[in-house]
């Protein structure tokens, strides 16, 4: 049900653009109004969401024990998996953000005949997750050639590297292939693995379909049914310089691609895609394992009224001495 709903939603979105642009001629709406609205939603929503998280206190120091913690001097500490210093924590966070370390440690367990429970390395999700994110990053940065004039140098080097196979004209980008392959894997994983399928929701399928069709429309535009990139850049530059222009004669395929991007941006703050910001706020990744050195005070702590033993003794000292009970101090 989730798959059908998500797929049909994305197809409906694209159909809406097709009708809107081809029949109703809403070029300005899809080329200027929607992008600005999407960008504003993205920025405001993103900041709001992060601030919302930042307002939640962390009650405990959530130490992770995925490696030897700091102990006696002759016990070797795993400084990156179980850091006790700020530098180590930054290192762990960098490993997480850049190399998805916690996903790398992923294992799967299955019942086999016996019955036996068997644990296995499960690296496919990590590999394809990594491929997906990095190819998406490269594709994203490559697109700066439409949004920046003069085109920054690193975009050229990225394009050169990405297109180094020099297959066909316009040259094939390696990341385009990887992106589609990785998105397809991430989707098939949800469909094929019964346990994953059981927990998959429309909010899991929808971004995958969105990204898949975003990629497909882009690839079709580049290699098969061309649009005039000079006009596309004119439109893109118009948006980012707040002088929006809608050059005539850009194919409807571009508006589909652009609209899917806008949907992605607007959907971002409300969805699980917020892991872009959320990964930095994961308590198990960003808190050093130092509760034995530094006291973590729960910000939630209610101011409890306490009555210490010393105060108790002060109140009842005479009576305690009279009754022959031992006291710590003979008098006040």
């Amino acid at each position: 049900m989730g798959i059908k709903f998500s797929l049909l939603s994305v197809i409906a979105l694209m159909a809406a653009v097709f009708v809107g642009v081809k029949v109703a001629g809403l070029h300005y709406f899809f080329g200027v109004v929607v992008p600005y609205a999407a960008l504003a939603t993205f920025l405001v929503g993103f900041i709001y969401r992060v601030l919302l998280w930042a307002r939640s206190p962390v009650p405990f120091n959530i130490t992770t024990t995925s490696g030897q913690q700091q102990s006696l001097p002759w016990v070797k500490q795993n400084k990156l998996d179980n850091p006790s210093t700020t530098a180590g924590t930054i290192g762990r966070m960098a490993l997480e953000v850049l190399f998805f370390r916690s996903l790398f440690r992923n294992t799967k367990y299955e019942y086999h005949e016996g019955p036996k429970l068997r644990y296995q390395w499960e690296k496919w999700l990590w590999i394809f997750g990594l491929l997906f994110h990095y190819s998406f990053l490269v594709i994203f940065l490559r697109h700066l050639r439409f949004f920046a004039e003069p085109v920054p140098g690193f975009v050229h080097s990225l394009e050169g590297l990405d297109g180094m196979l020099q297959v066909g004209l316009p040259g094939l980008y390696i990341t385009n292939l990887i992106f589609i392959a990785a998105v397809t894997f991430l989707f098939l994983r949800r469909v094929v693995v019964p346990q994953v399928r059981y927990i998959s929701l429309p909010s899991d399928y929808f971004p995958l379909f969105l990204l898949f069709f975003l990629g497909v429309t882009g690839i079709i535009m580049r290699y098969f049914s061309k649009v005039d990139v000079v006009k596309v850049k004119e439109l893109a530059l118009g948006i980012v310089t707040f002088n929006p222009v809608v050059p005539s004669g850009i194919g409807v395929l571009f508006y589909m691609h652009f609209f899917l991007l806008c949907v992605l941006l607007a959907y971002f703050p409300f969805s699980k895609l917020m892991h872009l910001g959320g990964v930095f706020l994961s308590p198990t990744r960003n808190m050093p394992n130092d509760p034995r050195m530094r006291r973590h005070v729960n910000p939630w702590n209610y101011p409890v009224k306490v009555h210490t033993y010393e105060e108790y003794e002060d109140d009842f000292r005479e009576k305690m001495i009279e009754a022959g009970l031992p006291v710590e101090k003979e008098s006040k």
Binding site: F147, P150, F242
Partner: peptide, 11 residues
């Protein structure tokens, strides 16, 4: 980035 990089004037 694209907004401040182009400094408000489209080439």
């Amino acid at each position: 980035f694209p907004i401040w990089y182009n400094k408000g004037t489209a080439a």
